[in-house]
Design a protein around this nucleic acid. Structure first.
Lengths: 341, 341
DNA sequence: CTGAAAGCGCTTACAG
DNA sequence: CTGAAAGCGCTTACAG
């Protein structure tokens, strides 16, 4: 008797296949009586809708893609959660690609996403390497939303934060606490746009405070806890011990704290440390981490909502949403003015 | 001129569409000269392969599904990373569904996965609620691999760990250190099979050591840091302060440590705490966390490899892989024998 | 080594 | 309110 497709259901219900399709998608267009016939047949035959066929017919898959550098970094977890929350109950599914900091892998991923005719793509970071391919996707009719930053390219859709300002504000906060030798453990500011913005914010805040940028106190690295520890050791190996360390993520900050402690420095009495992200654990480590809170969940929700609107052509022009960040004061940074002499 | 499909490429190259398809999938079957003609045409026209159409034709999408309870829990990050590593370079993509601890959402997810005709599904946990649907998927021809546990149902494919033994071993370790009043902060052992196994391991280890199971010292909860803190407060509100706390995840352990500290107890001097998972940060918090290490990345890799083998019918019978775990001793558990009198 | 042809299971105007 | 028909772009035997 072959597979149970819409045609089989139609036969069993004594209607046409078009009607079955209509019952599934626009039941209000079908007479209630006919509708019931179809529902009965579906139930009886155990019919299961085939979205692959539907996607094929529509020439577009009902899948949204998300590209991150690594699934291991907890900063993406909130974003993913928000995206999924927003997709929940819609006909869209989420595929997640992991570029593992490799430009070739990322290109390959974007190529695969293109072949899959995704409805839209959310990208966790723009780099000098992926800009072209993203643009290519967008032109091929796949709407692309960048997160975590406000892109320099004003024609990109983005739902992000002002990394420059967030970093500037945190640096100024450290300065206000009386810190003069401030180190920066950053991500790869040579490649990733948002990291570059944070680096700029840091530099400008120092400059505006009349403080010099000391190259021995700035190090760029990948974002794991171990990387943070290694970076801190590298800084300590220099000829100047900083009075405060601004780490570009909470994971890096935890690594830095560990390195400082193992080197005999107390945090925050000897050296202050702050992070970026405000992850779950930030309030619970010792000392409770002063950091920049970022609305990752909200960002995910809005990015997903945006990409769906774009996919359904419900949106004209660019979407550019800037979400607020703020410095969360906890215990890992000391007020040197007060503590000193 | 219409869309650029295989037919257009075929025309441009002066060959048939079958040949174009062959060049893409089995180039070794085509004369090198013809092959070049096709490659040229592809390049010239900017042809982009349509995997939606291919999936439709094959009556199966080249997508693997992964179901987790929450993307927020860092224990899944390593697993996801391993899965993606293994899928990298194959024709499979990964869709991730988030059941947010809700049985109805999970059922809905599994239903959607069925409609998408996935090649296979990896499930992060079996519960009393999802067992039936998973079985339904499997019978519908969608191979399903369960992770994080060895299922009681011997006909399930699984790549997991022995939760009973891992938990038994850790509990015995605490007993050997001289602890007698041992509390357990567990996950939802009323629902999740692997959590139940851990609970059993804990109970049996106490019994085998001649220690009573004290109900005031056992609490089940959801797995965030905050939940761990709340659970610890609940235990402390009872009439007995435990000498050691076994938390079912490192996140829960961090919450417990925070609660103990805020209640005036020193860890590990007054109360020992251990976790489960061995996340990135475990060695770097204070005190460095004693925990059970779980090969999440390896589990992801093997689960993905298994589901692909199953999807391609390269595997007969059940796949049941049990990966090793081990107690990682660090600084958060005190040897009471030595420290005491 | 290459081509002609059937068919995968839907959706979508269009006609009635 | 319902049905007939075309078509989405591939893959896969099969024939030559």
């Amino acid at each position: 008797m072959g597979r149970i497709d819409m045609h089989a259901v139609a036969s069993a219900a004594g209607v046409s296949q078009s009607t079955v399709s209509r019952v599934l998608h626009r039941p209000e267009l079908v007479r209630p009586q006919t509708r019931e016939l179809v529902y009965d047949a579906i139930e009886r035959l155990g019919y299961e809708y085939n979205s692959v066929a539907a996607d094929f017919n529509r020439q577009k898959s009902s899948i949204i893609g998300l590209i991150v550098f690594t699934a291991r970094s907890s900063i993406h977890a909130d974003l993913i959660d928000g995206v999924q929350e927003e997709l929940q109950g819609t006909r869209y599914s989420l595929v997640i690609g992991n570029s593992r900091y490799d430009a070739a892998t990322e290109r390959e991923l974007i190529r695969l996403f293109g072949q899959r005719r995704l409805s839209g793509v959310i990208v966790a970071e723009t780099t000098d390497e992926n800009r072209d391919e993203l643009w290519h996707l967008e032109r091929a009719g796949v709407p692309t939303v960048v997160t975590w930053e406000m892109t320099e390219d004003k024609s990109c859709h983005c739902v992000g934060i002002d990394n420059y300002k967030a970093s500037y504000d945190m640096t100024q906060y450290l300065v206000r606490l009386g810190h003069r030798g401030i180190a920066l453990i950053a991500g790869r500011y040579d490649r990733i746009e948002r990291v570059r913005h944070r680096y700029q914010g840091f530099c400008d805040a120092l400059r505006d405070s009349g403080l010099p940028l000391e190259s021995g106190l700035v190090v760029g690295t990948t974002p794991s806890v171990v990387d943070g520890r290694d970076a801190m050791y590298r800084i300590l190996a220099g000829n100047k011990v900083p009075s405060a360390v601004f780490a570009a993520s909470d994971a890096l900050a935890m690594g830095a704290i560990s390195a400082l402690r193992d080197s005999g420095y107390s945090v925050p009495d000897d050296v202050s440390v702050c992070g970026f992200d405000d992850i779950d654990m930030a309030p619970f480590i010792t000392p409770a981490l002063t950091t920049v809170s970022v609305p990752g969940y909200e960002m995910g929700k809005q990015a997903a909502a945006s990409v769906m609107r774009l996919a359904e052509s419900k949106q004209e022009g660019e979407i550019r949403v800037c979400l607020p960040t703020r410095v969360v004061e906890r215990d890992s940074c000391q007020d040197v003015n007060r503590a000193g002499c």
